[in-house]
């Protein structure tokens, strides 16, 4: 008898909690994949496609589903390290197939050579190029992520990638360059 009672009580309890958990999972459902979003936040958002995915978000989704973490060339080792920390895996070296230098660059159109074919506009993932058919095009350098995608489609090769010039605003203190003296 007592055995039966125990079974009934436990059974009722179990079904109650089951219902509670079921309700909670519906009520507090998390939209989207939080891991993919966290990874996306670490990626440089260059949207260059060098990872083999059409943009940073797709790559973040893929990483969340087990893709290798070392394919983002513009992010370089820093990004790989951050993703590794986030995912709790070992950091790896950047995938060998894209050992590009990741100095920040912006695209620049040599305007006298531009024939106004609009091909670069179609290639730019962040709409950083202004221009229209048979008119000179130009790049909004503030919006350009330096992804390189507009260089290849240009039929007259008038797009060049220029490293971002160092100035006193983006300059990084370098301990080895000029010593800042403090004397006593």
């Amino acid at each position: 008898m007592s055995l039966l009672l125990a079974i009934v009580i436990i059974g009722v309890l179990a079904s109650c909690f089951g219902a509670l958990i079921g309700f909670a999972s519906v009520k507090f459902k998390v939209e989207g994949d939080p891991l993919a979003e966290q990874i996306d936040a670490l990626l440089p958002q260059t949207q260059c496609g060098q990872c083999g995915y059409p943009g940073c978000k797709p790559y973040a989704d893929a990483v969340a589903n087990g893709e290798a973490i070392n394919k983002c060339a513009p992010g370089g080792d820093d990004t790989i390290k951050k993703i590794a920390d986030l995912m709790g895996v070992e950091a790896q070296a950047l995938d060998e197939s894209h050992q590009t230098d990741n100095t920040p660059k912006v695209a620049f159109i040599i305007e006298e050579d531009c024939i106004g074919c609009t091909k670069c506009i179609q290639a730019c993932p962040v709409d950083a190029i202004i221009g229209t058919t048979k008119q000179m095009h130009t790049i909004i350098s503030d919006e350009c992520t330096g992804c390189d995608l507009c260089v290849a489609p240009c039929p007259v090769d008038c797009i060049i990638m220029m490293p971002i010039a160092k100035n006193t605003r983006n300059w990084q203190w370098d301990l080895n360059s000029i010593p800042v003296e403090q004397i006593s």
């Binding site: 958002q45 962040v126 300059w171 990084q172």
Partner: peptide
């Protein structure tokens, strides 16, 4: 050095966010 790095990083973050939105 660290302050400059953080400032730079903040700028980059802002830029990345903008790029994402535009994308």
């Amino acid at each position: 050095v660290a302050k400059a790095e953080i400032r730079q990083q903040t700028l980059l973050d802002i830029k990345a966010e903008k790029a994402k939105q535009r994308f």
